[in-house]
Nucleic acid binder design. Structure first.
Length: 801
DNA sequence: AGCCCCGGTGAAGTC
DNA sequence: CACCGGGGCT
C-alpha cells in the first residue's frame, strides 16, 4: 500500500492512515483534502475493512462519483462499488427506502421538491382560510425547514411556549398548525420533503434501537466531507451512527462554512473536540492549488473574521500573477470587459475555455456575461438557474412516473389529472379535494374508490375519473416487469403527452417535444449503465415488499434490469453541479456559477465579479456581524478556487430590481493588501462594442431576456428585441423558447404637456402636468370620464391622439 | 375548459 | 424586470 501513500506529505499521510477512532482533519483550501479522503478509504480497504462497512458522505453526488472512480483505480472496481458514498440526502433516502415502513411510510415514498412543498402549503392555507400574503408559502416553508433541521416536530413546535410566543408576536400564530397540517398532508401522500430525509432518518434511528444497531454495525467507518456545512439534523445522525465504534473521520474547513442560511452550524466542527475528547486532529495547511499571491490574499481576507480555528495556510507554489482588479461603468460593461479578458487570455495562454470560471454572488448576475460571451462566440455553461427537471413538460411527464410509483402522491395527481385535457376540471377537483380532506385520505384513495365517496358528480365525469385511475394503475403494474426506458416510453406515449406536444408545431412546442426526447434518452442511458450493489440490495428488498400479486407476471428471480423507480430516485436529489454534459466536446466551456456552487471546484483562471457593497457582501448580511463573516468566508471560497490567476471586478452602476443603482466597491477588495493587486486600466476598450447588438439596443431600448435554458443547453438562452408596439407580444429565440414582452413604452418619453392621449381603461384625456426625469416621469392626466389620474409614463399604456 | 391579459409582488445562496 | 395567480372572456 505504500505505493500511493508516497504521494502524500507527512501530515496528509498521518491523516490518511490513522484509521481507527475519531479523527478531525482541518483542511485548508487546496490542501489536498480529497486526495487524503480517497487514500484514507483505500487504506481502510487495504487494512481488510470491508467496503460494506464504510460510509462516506460528500457534498455533491459528483464528488462522490469522482472519489469512487479514484478509489476504484487504487483498489479495483469490484471493491469500490460496494462503498456507500453520496450526499447526506441521497444516502439517507436510500436507507429510508429500505426502512421507511417501520415509521409508517411506504418504501416507494415520493420526494417532494420545493415547488411541491409550497403547493402543499398553499392548499393548507386555503383549507385553514388563511391569507397567503401573511403566511407566504416560501416563508412558511423556511420556518418549517428550520424546525425540522433542528429536529423539532410539529407537536414540539406547538408545545414550545417560546416559538408560540414568537409566532404570536409576529402575527403569525397559526404557523404551528400549518406545520402540523403539512406534516400530515405529506405523510398521507407518502411523501417526504428534503428535510424529511434527514428528519425521518433521525426518527427511525431514535425510535428503533435495533435499526440503529444494524446500521452502527454496518457503517463501522464513517467519513464526512465538508463537515463545516452540516446542520443539527445531520450532526445527530452521524453522532448516532458513530456512537458504537467511534470510527468517525470528519474533514472540513471552518473558513469555508457558507451554508448557515440553510441551518448549517459551524459549531459542529468547532465543537467536534468536545464530543470526542480523545480524537486525533490533523491540520492540512499546505496549499497545492494556488499561487503564493492568491493564498496570501485569501489569508489576508479571512484574518478579518473573529470566529475561526487557528491555522496557517501556506504554499510552496510560485508567486504568480497579481490579482487583477477591474472597474466597470455598468453591469454590461463588466460583462464585456471580463469576456474580452477571457477571450484574450485564452489566446495568449493557449488555455482551454474550461480553464475559466466566472463566479458571482447571485444567479441574476449571469445575464451581462452571457450576452457578452455570446457576442464573442465564447462557449459557456451556466450552472444553477432553472434546471432541466424543472421545466414544465418534464415535470408533467415525471409526475406520471411519480404517480405510477406512488399512487398517493397528491401533487402529481393535481398536476396530471387533467393533462392532457380529459375533462376533469377545477370544480371536480375541488370536490375530490374536499372529500379527501373530510375522510383524511389521499386524492388517489378518492378517485380510485369513487363509489365510496359521495361527490355529487355525473356519470360522465365519474367515468373519466375512473379511466384515469385505471390508466395509472396499469402503469403501476408494469413498474417491475419493464425496464425504466420501456415503461417511461410507454407512459409518454400512452398518456398522450407525446402526441400533445408533437401536434404543437409552434417553436415552443417543438422544443418541449425535444426535451421529452432528451429525458427519454437520459433514461435509456441510465438503463444501460451498470447497477450498483446498493441498488441490488434495494431491489431485493423492494421485491420482498412487493410480492407478485395474483394474476401478475412473476417477477424475475433477480431483476436484470433497472426500473423506473430506480431512475426517479437517481434524479430527485441531483445537485446543480451534478448535471454535467457527458460528452467530452461539450465540456470545453467557460463556467458561470454562483460562488456557492463553486465550492469544491478549481479553475486556473477565476473571475469574481460584482464585488460591490450590498451585492457581495449582500445587503441582507451587512447589518449582522455573523452574516458578514459568512459572506467573507464566501469570498474566501471564491478566491481560493483559483489556481493561476484571480481577477476581481465591480461596476459603479448596475440595474437592480428594474432600476439603476449606483454602487460602491466591496469592502472585501480593501481587505487585500495593495501589493497583491493589479488595478487594470479603466480604458479597456472593447473592439466589439459597436456590434449590431448595440445598435438594436439604441433603437429599441434594453432587450428583454428570455428564460434561461436548461442546464444542459445554456447556449439556447436568447435575446429578443421587441419593436415598439401597443400590445403585449410574444417573441421567440432561435431554438423556439419564447417570452412575453411588454410593449416598448419609450415612445411615451416624447409626450409633452397639453397633448391629447388615450388610455385603454380611462379613455381620452389631456396631459396636464409632467414631473420628474425619464424614466421616472410622472404625468397628471385629466381624463374625460375617469377624471384626473397621476400615472408613471414608463408604465402607462398611452397612445397619442 | 382553456386562453389571454392584467396586476400584484418579490428579487440570496440549495438538497 | 420577471414570475405567478386570478379573473374574465371566448
Amino acid at each position: 500500500m505504500n505505493h500511493f501513500l508516497d504521494e502524500l506529505n507527512p501530515v496528509q499521510r498521518a491523516a490518511a492512515t490513522s484509521i481507527e477512532g475519531p479523527v478531525m482533519i482541518i483542511a485548508g483550501a487546496g490542501s489536498g483534502k480529497t486526495r487524503v479522503l480517497t487514500y484514507r478509504i483505500a487504506c481502510l480497504l487495504e487494512n481488510k475493512v470491508s467496503a460494506f462497512n464504510i460510509l462516506a458522505l460528500t457534498f455533491t453526488n459528483k464528488a462522490a462519483r469522482e472519489m469512487k472512480e479514484r478509489i476504484a483505480a487504487l483498489v479495483g472496481e469490484k471493491t469500490a462499488k460496494n462503498l456507500w458514498m453520496g450526499t447526506f440526502h441521497s444516502v439517507f433516502a436510500k436507507l429510508l427506502r429500505i426502512e421507511a415502513e417501520k415509521i409508517g411510510y411506504p418504501h416507494n415514498f415520493t420526494i417532494y421538491d420545493t415547488d411541491d412543498s409550497k403547493s402543499v402549503i398553499r392548499e393548507i392555507l386555503k383549507q385553514l382560510k388563511l391569507d397567503d400574503k401573511v403566511y407566504k408559502p416560501s416563508m412558511v416553508l423556511n420556518r418549517i425547514s428550520d424546525a425540522k433541521n433542528k429536529l423539532i416536530s410539529s407537536r414540539q413546535y406547538l408545545n414550545n411556549p417560546i416559538t408560540q410566543q414568537e409566532d404570536f408576536s409576529s402575527r403569525k400564530p397559526m404557523l404551528g398548525q400549518i406545520y402540523a397540517a403539512y406534516e400530515k398532508a405529506n405523510f398521507r401522500a407518502g411523501a417526504m420533503d428534503f428535510d424529511d430525509l434527514l428528519f425521518q432518518t433521525n426518527v427511525l434511528l431514535r425510535d428503533f434501537p435495533d435499526v440503529l444497531l444494524k446500521y452502527q454495525d454496518k457503517f463501522r467507518f464513517i467519513l464526512v466531507d465538508e463537515y463545516q456545512d452540516t446542520n443539527f439534523s445531520q450532526y445527530v445522525i452521524i453522532k448516532q451512527l458513530a456512537a458504537r465504534f467511534q470510527n468517525i473521520c470528519v474533514v472540513g474547513d471552518d473558513a469555508q462554512s457558507i451554508y448557515a442560511f440553510r441551518g448549517a452550524n459551524i459549531q459542529n466542527i468547532l465543537n467536534f473536540e468536545k464530543d470526542y475528547p480523545d480524537l486525533r486532529k490533523f491540520k492540512l495547511e499546505q496549499n497545492y492549488r494556488s499561487t503564493k499571491t492568491i493564498v496570501n490574499a485569501a489569508n489576508q481576507i479571512i484574518a478579518n473574521n473573529v470566529n475561526q480555528l487557528q491555522k496557517t495556510v501556506f504554499t510552496e507554489n510560485e508567486e504568480g500573477h497579481k490579482i487583477g482588479l477591474i472597474k466597470a461603468g455598468s453591469d454590461n460593461e463588466e460583462g464585456q470587459k471580463i469576456s474580452n479578458l477571457i477571450f484574450e487570455t485564452r489566446m495568449r495562454e493557449q488555455a482551454k475555455y474550461s480553464d475559466f470560471a466566472i463566479l458571482y454572488r447571485t444567479n441574476a448576475q449571469s445575464r451581462s456575461f452571457e450576452e457578452a460571451l455570446r457576442k464573442l462566440n465564447v462557449p459557456y455553461r451556466i450552472f444553477g438557474g432553472i434546471s432541466f427537471y424543472q421545466r414544465k413538460e418534464i415535470k408533467d411527464l415525471i409526475s406520471y412516473y411519480r404517480l405510477a410509483i406512488n399512487n398517493h402522491d397528491n401533487e402529481s395527481v393535481k398536476r396530471v389529472i387533467n393533462y392532457p385535457a380529459r375533462g376533469i376540471g377545477q370544480s371536480t377537483m375541488d370536490k375530490i379535494t374536499v372529500a379527501a380532506a373530510e375522510h383524511d385520505v389521499s386524492l388517489w384513495t378518492v378517485i380510485s374508490h369513487l363509489k365510496d365517496f359521495d361527490l355529487g358528480i355525473n356519470s360522465g365525469i365519474t367515468a373519466k375519473i375512473s379511466d384515469f385511475a385505471t390508466q395509472i394503475t396499469s402503469y403501476t403494474l408494469l413498474l417491475h416487469t419493464q425496464d425504466a426506458f420501456e415503461l417511461a416510453n410507454h407512459i409518454a406515449v400512452n398518456s398522450g403527452i407525446i402526441k400533445e406536444l408533437y401536434n404543437d408545431k409552434t417553436p415552443e412546442g417543438v422544443s418541449r417535444y425535444e426535451n421529452i426526447q432528451e429525458l427519454l434518452n437520459g433514461i435509456k442511458d441510465f438503463v444501460e449503465q451498470d447497477r450498483s450493489p446498493q441498488e441490488d440490495e434495494l431491489s431485493t428488498i423492494i421485491k420482498e415488499l412487493n410480492p407478485p400479486q395474483e394474476g401478475e407476471a412473476l417477477l424475475p428471480e433477480t431483476r436484470g434490469f433497472k426500473t423506473l423507480d430506480e431512475f426517479m430516485q437517481d434524479i430527485s436529489l441531483l445537485t446543480n453541479v451534478d448535471l454535467e454534459d457527458e460528452k467530452e466536446k461539450d465540456r470545453n466551456k467557460v463556467s458561470l456559477m454562483t460562488v456557492h456552487s463553486a465550492k469544491g471546484l478549481e479553475f486556473p483562471y477565476v473571475y469574481i465579479v460584482g464585488l460591490e457593497e450590498n451585492l457581495f457582501p449582500s445587503q441582507l448580511s451587512v447589518s449582522d456581524p455573523g452574516d458578514l463573516e459568512e459572506e467573507r468566508r464566501l469570498f474566501y471560497v471564491a478566491l481560493t478556487r483559483a489556481e493561476k490567476k484571480a481577477t476581481l471586478s465591480y461596476a459603479t452602476m448596475r440595474y437592480r430590481f428594474g432600476n439603476v443603482t449606483y454602487c460602491e466597491p466591496s469592502r472585501f477588495i480593501s481587505e487585500i493588501q495593495n501589493e497583491c493587486l493589479d488595478v487594470l486600466p479603466e480604458d479597456n476598450h472593447n473592439p466589439f462594442q459597436d456590434s449590431i447588438f448595440d445598435s438594436f439596443r439604441k433603437e429599441y431600448g434594453s432587450p428583454s431576456r428570455i428564460k434561461p435554458g436548461a442546464a444542459t443547453q445554456p447556449q439556447t438562452k436568447g435575446i429578443a428585441f421587441q419593436p415598439a408596439g401597443k400590445k403585449l407580444i410574444r417573441v421567440h429565440n432561435t431554438i423556439g423558447q419564447s417570452a412575453q414582452v411588454p410593449p416598448d413604452l419609450s415612445l411615451n418619453k416624447s409626450l409633452k404637456e397639453d397633448e391629447l392621449v388615450t388610455h385603454e381603461k380611462f379613455g381620452k384625456g389631456r396631459i396636464l402636468k409632467l414631473e420628474g426625469i425619464w424614466p421616472e416621469t410622472k404625468a397628471t392626466i385629466s381624463f374625460e370620464t375617469a377624471g384626473n389620474k397621476s400615472l408613471l409614463l414608463k408604465f402607462a399604456r398611452l397612445q397619442r391622439m
